[in-house]
Amino acid sequence: MKLPKWQTYIPLLFIIFMFVLPLFMNSPRYLNLLNQLLLNIILAMGVYSVWSVGFINAAQPIFYGLGSYTVALLMMRAHFPFWLAFPMAGVIPAVVALLFGLIGLKMKGAYFLFLTIALDGLISWLFISWKGLFGGQLGIFPVPQPRIQAFGLDINFATSRTPYYYLALVTAVITCLVYFKMFNSRLGRVWESIGKTEDLLANTGISVFTQKQIALAVSCFFAGLAGAIWAPYITIITPSQFGLWQGITIVLGVLVGGIYSPLGAIIGTIFMAALNLVFTYLPSQTVQYQPMALGFILVLVLLFMPTGILGLSGRVQNRIKELTGRKTAPPSINKDDVKAV
């Protein structure tokens, strides 16, 4: 996908916009929403990348939760400093993902989806039942707050929400950079071909299974990092924060945005956040209707808008091109194009 020149600056402008945003908008409520949005984008990018190799991971919040518990336990029990616990919170979910992938990634996509749901149940059950380690239903609190004292700076995460926002933003930007770079490389072509022409890939010497493992482990690594930001931010972590429903919401976001581009994952996640915001303004009796609304969105998008919001914009673009007469004809094949050897 080659973008025209001016479009390549949009992400850059967007990132700058996100960096200066707290200067104008520092109400804790919106900062909180933005923070969650950034963490969800990290999860969504992972879900998208695993989807591109043919699997839907509905248990992404569980890996996020593993990151949260890892960072909290390492800081509280082992007295790790946050900056040491933070990368560990990525590594542990990635290792769990690799082990899970040994079985799950050998199955067909739909059965993998089921296995992620089962895994979600299993690890939630572990969080609840292993009270000695994970603290049961009540969870763990208070998770210590990080503090940076370096280069004459003293940033105390305990006194303000803003540092968390920047930490989440930097992590999200790095995640997106990694994935965009990945999907624009030759390896990206390989990943996009997985799930469609696996026999052919294997025949060119590519271990499809290894690539799937990498995709899953990397996505869970970033999910764990996001979780590591969440734990000190929210200070109390409980098993209910990492349920299946959150996982489905993320999957839904990726789908709504458009599953044919990593950009879709971001757009869709923003859409879902906006939808959630709308829900908060509705009268409280309607809370019970919300899953139904999400269910309808899921079914309707799948049936009538399979390319998501991004696909819609593509269709709009084509329509404009048609109207302005700048239609790009599909490349035609000419007999003369093929020279005899």
């Binding site: 989806l113 209707y289 899953p291 139904m292 969105i297 899921l298 079914v299 799948l302």
Partner: peptide, 21 residues
């Protein structure tokens, strides 16, 4: 297989919510 499976997931929540209401 993936997309219809997701659609049934959506339908499942619709049915659950309908019965709940």
């Amino acid at each position: 297989g993936l997309e219809p499976a997701l659609a049934t997931f959506g339908s499942s929540t619709i049915m659950q919510t309908a019965v709940l209401i």
